[in-house]
């Protein structure tokens, strides 16, 4: 039907696509100094110096200095005992987090699309959001025991709320104009899900997964501190009872590093899977 229409050449359109950002003309070293990384490094250096001073002059027995902590980190990194504790802890983390994603994403999608489901479940989600999770640990121990299962369940409960809540709001925030557009072209419910709702909610799904990951790490440590002194939590309690501040801090530092690496990986994945959302955030 369009064969007879003369093709319009792009030159005829006066509008140009969105222009790329202006090039920064300052010298490379100035730009490097002005980057976020530079400020982060500066902030960290100030923090380390303050810590060092405090630890040296006022810290006493239980607050190690920055350098002591760094040395202890070096110790732990070559200590097989640490790595086996790390592996045991992460077992619960990996299983619990995967369960949270596998259960939480579909649940969030349903809640976002169907208001009835949402009304049924809202109370419970809010309870999960505000309840101090530590309170349900004794309950878990009583019903499931001290094993891997109850650690996995706790990590799941910690993480799943963030996943569900974010996925739900992601589905709800899909532009209604897009849903109307899809309907006008005769999209079926399945096509609407696959082509509009899920891609539209993907940025929020990824955010939920990233925040859920943070909560999963928290859950992993808390359950070991409060319920069963195994693995990393056990190590922390152990160092505390020996007044070994440096190693205690070092363990926590390593957990922090793990959390940062995982969240960084989630962020990277987000930018790969939903690049348009990252662009929107930059522009808006």
């Amino acid at each position: 039907m369009t064969a007879t229409v003369p093709a319009r050449t792009p030159e005829r359109t006066s509008e140009s696509p969105v222009p790329p950002r202006r090039r920064d003309r300052r010298p490379a070293w100035v730009r490097a100094l002005d980057s976020t990384t530079a400020y982060q490094l500066l902030g960290f250096a100030l923090f380390a110096v303050a810590w060092q001073l405090y630890g040296t002059y006022w810290g006493g027995l239980l607050v190690p200095t920055f350098t002591e902590t760094v040395l202890a980190v070096g110790d732990l990194v070559v200590d097989p005992e640490f790595w086996s504790a790390f592996a045991v802890s992460n077992q619960a983390l990996v299983l619990g987090f995967l369960a949270a994603v596998v259960l939480g994403v579909p649940l969030g999608l349903l809640l976002g699309r169907f208001p009835v489901a949402e009304r049924l479940s809202n109370v419970y989600l809010n309870i999960l959001l505000v309840t101090p999770m530590a309170a349900i640990i004794p309950l878990l121990v009583m019903s499931v025991g001290f094993g891997l299962a109850s650690r996995v369940i706790l990590v799941t409960i910690f993480a799943i709320v963030m996943v569900v809540v974010n996925v739900r709001s992601g589905v709800r925030q899909v532009d209604p104009a897009l849903l109307q557009m899809a309907r006008s072209f005769g999209a079926s419910e399945r096509q609407t899900w696959m082509r509009v709702l899920i891609p539209g909610a993907l940025p929020s799904i990824m955010t939920g997964i990233r925040l859920g990951l943070g909560r999963a790490v928290t859950g992993m440590v808390i359950v070991e501190l409060l319920m069963v002194s195994v693995a990393l939590g056990g190590l922390i309690l152990n160092y505390r009872s020996r007044f070994d501040g440096a190693h205690l801090y070092a363990t926590i530092v390593l957990i922090l590093i793990e959390a940062l690496v995982l969240i960084g990986a989630a962020r990277w994945l987000e930018s790969r899977l939903a690049p348009w959302a990252v662009n929107q955030r930059k522009n808006g």
Binding site: A177, L178, Q180, M181, R195, P199, L202, W276
Partner: peptide
């Protein structure tokens, strides 16, 4: 549509 209603990811 007035506001285009394009899929931003496609």
């Amino acid at each position: 549509f007035q506001n285009f209603a394009l899929l931003p990811w496609a």
